[in-house]
Simulated assay, not measured.
Amino acid sequence: MRRRMLAQLEPWGITPHHARALRCIGETDRARLRDVADRLRIAARSATEVVDALQEKGLVTREPDPLDRRATLVSPTEDGRRLVEAIDAARAERNAEFFGALTAQDRATLHRILGSLPVE
Rank of each mutant, 00 (worst) to 15 (best):
M1I: 07
R4G: 09
M5L: 12
M5V: 09
L6Y: 04
L9C: 04
L9T: 05
L9M: 06
W12P: 04
G13F: 04
I14G: 01
I14P: 09
T15L: 09
H17N: 11
H17Y: 07
H18N: 12
H18F: 03
H18Y: 06
R20G: 01
L22E: 02
L22R: 03
C24M: 04
C24Y: 03
C24G: 01
I25P: 03
I25V: 12
G26I: 01
E27N: 04
E27D: 11
T28Q: 15
R30W: 11
R30D: 09
A31W: 09
R32I: 00
L33T: 03
L33D: 13
R34S: 15
R34K: 15
D35W: 14
D35F: 15
D35P: 14
D35I: 00
D38V: 00
D38N: 14
R39V: 00
R39C: 05
L40N: 05
L40H: 06
R41M: 08
R41H: 04
R41K: 07
I42V: 15
A43I: 00
A43N: 15
A44G: 13
S46V: 06
A47L: 08
T48N: 14
T48F: 10
V50K: 11
V50E: 13
D52Y: 07
L54Y: 02
E56Y: 02
E56D: 06
K57A: 02
K57R: 08
K57N: 00
G58D: 03
L59F: 03
V60N: 01
V60D: 00
T61G: 13
R62V: 00
E63R: 14
E63P: 00
P64W: 02
L67S: 07
L67F: 02
D68W: 05
D68C: 00
R69V: 00
R70V: 01
R70Q: 08
A71Y: 10
T72Q: 13
V74A: 11
V74W: 13
P76G: 07
E78P: 09
D79N: 12
D79E: 12
D79F: 03
D79V: 02
G80A: 05
G80I: 05
R81S: 04
R82Q: 14
R82A: 10
V84C: 06
V84F: 04
I87M: 12
I87K: 00
A90T: 08
A92P: 02
E93N: 11
R94W: 08
R94A: 14
R94F: 12
N95T: 09
A96T: 07
A96D: 14
F98Y: 14
G100F: 06
A101L: 13
A101T: 11
L102Q: 07
A104H: 02
Q105F: 03
Q105Y: 02
D106Q: 13
A108L: 01
T109H: 12
L110V: 00
L110D: 03
R112T: 10
I113R: 15
I113S: 05
L114H: 05
G115L: 10
G115W: 10
G115C: 11
S116N: 06
L117A: 07
L117S: 01
E120G: 03
E120D: 04
